[in-house]
Simulated assay, not measured.
Amino acid sequence: MGDLIYEIGQNAYIKLVLHALKHKESSVNGVLVGRFDGGKGVVEIVDAVPLFHSNIGLLPALEIALMQIEEHYASQGLSLVGYFHANERSDDNDLGNVAKNIGDHLCRYFPQAGVLLLDNSKLEALPKVKDRSPVMQLYSKNGSTWKVEESNRLVLKEPSANIILLDYVSTQKWEDIADFDDHLDDINKDWLNTYLFK
């Protein structure tokens, strides 16, 4: 992997955290969309698509979602660059088998794919400490195993992202987010969350 930097845009970051907050009682996941700048050694995470909050390891639904997402973003010159996961229990900070398997799957197509795991303790501390670092931990693939990366390898593109996030949390903006599960239940629910930041 070298010393790649993973730079996450504000909207992608906020979307993933809101997805986890909406479904606090279950594991959630999503994919990261962006581009790889090999010259700078940066994986730019431009957008995020919340996937599931129930049956997160169900392969047929995952395959359908990934095909639709790739098709949608290809026209913008973007592709899948990683995966996001939040565990069901707030005290669980381990990268589980489902997250590793989906990460492995994405690495077949994009070897530099990273996995972001929500850190609930960082999220809970955010209003008190006014931290500017992401509330998630970056994992990268090293051979056949996933390892935690140094915190400076994952950066927020906009330093004020946590301030904006707190504003969305205080107004319970997570109620407006739709994931692929929601879309499969009701096709009127927009898995792209086009209007989330309007």
Rank of each mutant, 00 (worst) to 15 (best):
D186T: 00
K173Y: 06
G143E: 12
N193R: 01
G57K: 03
A178Y: 15
N97Q: 13
V81Y: 01
P60K: 04
F36W: 07
D104A: 08
G39M: 08
D182R: 03
S79F: 13
L116W: 05
K147Q: 15
L21I: 05
D179Y: 07
I8M: 08
G39C: 05
E71Y: 10
L62F: 14
G2F: 09
V17F: 08
H72Q: 07
V135M: 09
N87D: 00
Q76V: 00
L80F: 04
N97L: 12
E149K: 01
L58Q: 12
Y6S: 01
V49S: 04
D92G: 01
V115Q: 02
V31P: 06
N162Q: 03
I56C: 12
P111G: 06
V98I: 14
K24Q: 10
S160H: 09
G96V: 11
E149M: 10
Q10H: 02
P134N: 08
I163R: 11
K128T: 06
G82I: 03
V33H: 00
G34Y: 02
T194I: 10
K24W: 06
K189Y: 04
G39Y: 08
E44H: 15
G39R: 11
L192N: 03
L4E: 10
F197G: 06
L21M: 12
G103K: 02
L95C: 08
D92N: 10
K15D: 04
K157M: 09
K122R: 14
V98W: 01
Y83N: 02
I5W: 02
V17A: 05
H19L: 11
N188D: 13
L58Y: 15
